[in-house]
Design a protein around this nucleic acid. Structure first.
Lengths: 193, 193
DNA sequence: CCTACCGATCGGTAGG
DNA sequence: CCTACCGATCGGTAGG
């Protein structure tokens, strides 16, 4: 599961799979498609990986752990709910800009995980969402966030952050800090008091 | 294509397909799954529909036309860009609350359309997005909307509207006008001056 | 609306 | 890493 323990070839296969899963969807991506994309025969993939689903698992859990770990770091680094919220927004934006492919197939294709991995994934996600909403609640209690339904604020916020890859065109060479600032103004502007 | 011209049975099949496509994805939904859900044998589906893709086409284009037609009505009814924007936000929310199933598989599964339908669909969508962005530009020119990149405002706005089905639980019996008002405050709050 | 069935494609294995 | 091949499942048709 650790990125560093993987062979370069396996890492290349996983990254290519993430791109195909994003572009065509997990189910519509055949192992023959993937084999072509990495210049192998389909059967040769299996000397590097165990199964098609293993690829999806690697992508989904790597990202899930990335978010959960960052959540812990942010909770420890900041005390004010508004600072934590800003850091979380910045985190989502940064990851979306750095690794748009992996994050997209993580967002959209986790539903094809089989048990028990599906439950494990959903439990990681639920934990993350719960802590995110607790920060919003803390902000509301402190009077720095508008008194609107927490789930409404949370999902609106998270949704805005999900589709950055859809409009962000890295070739325009925008400054990343500019993007983070603008998006924070748009996204947090309707939430903070 | 017209809802009223379809037999009740065909309408039922389409609505069931929309639900399955949303829950499992288009590719992961087999015609045997659909047949089971409507209590038929797989082969019997074909006396009501021409193909699996026809179902997806009906769902995608029905929703696409619904948005394009509403856009025209809003452009004619309102003159001020801010009023148009508010009406568009209300439109997306209303549709999401009324018909969450159909709208979700429209949002997520259009990529599985084959040519020439894929191009036709994308051209409808592009037209809609262009007119949406022109309204934002008009608002910026009038000074009622913040001077931030139009595509950033547009996609953030649209993204927030896409996932309402994900948190909206109709059994809680919230008042719809309340939801529209709260969401407009959250979503437009970061955009209007 | 059903039974019976088709060719194509799927994920994956055997054996070298 | 390849050739050869597997059983399962797919969307869809024939014929009644």
């Amino acid at each position: 599961m650790d990125k560093k323990q993987r062979s370069p070839k396996k890492q290349f296969i996983i990254e290519t799979a993430a791109r195909l899963f994003r572009d065509k969807g997990y189910r519509a991506t055949s192992m023959r498609d993937l084999a072509d994309a990495v210049d192998l025969k389909a059967s040769s993939l299996y000397s590097h990986i165990k199964s098609k689903e293993e690829l999806l698992r690697d992508i989904c859990f790597e990202n899930a752990h990335r978010f959960v770990n960052s959540m812990e770091a942010i909770e420890q680094e900041y005390n004010e709910p508004l600072d934590q919220l800003k850091a979380l927004v910045a985190l989502h934006i940064t990851i979306a800009l750095q690794d748009p492919t992996s994050i997209t197939s993580f967002n959209d294709e986790w539903q094809h995980l089989s048990e028990p991995f599906l439950s494990e994934f959903l439990s990681l996600r639920k934990d993350y969402e719960k802590r995110f909403q607790q920060i919003i609640d803390a902000g509301k209690a402190k009077g720095v966030i508008k008194n609107l339904p927490t789930n409404m604020i949370f999902y609106t916020l998270l949704s805005s952050l999900r589709w950055i890859y859809d409009w962000y065109k890295p070739e325009r060479n925008q400054d990343t800090t500019d993007i983070v600032e603008h998006l924070q103004e748009i996204i947090l502007g309707g939430i903070v008091k």
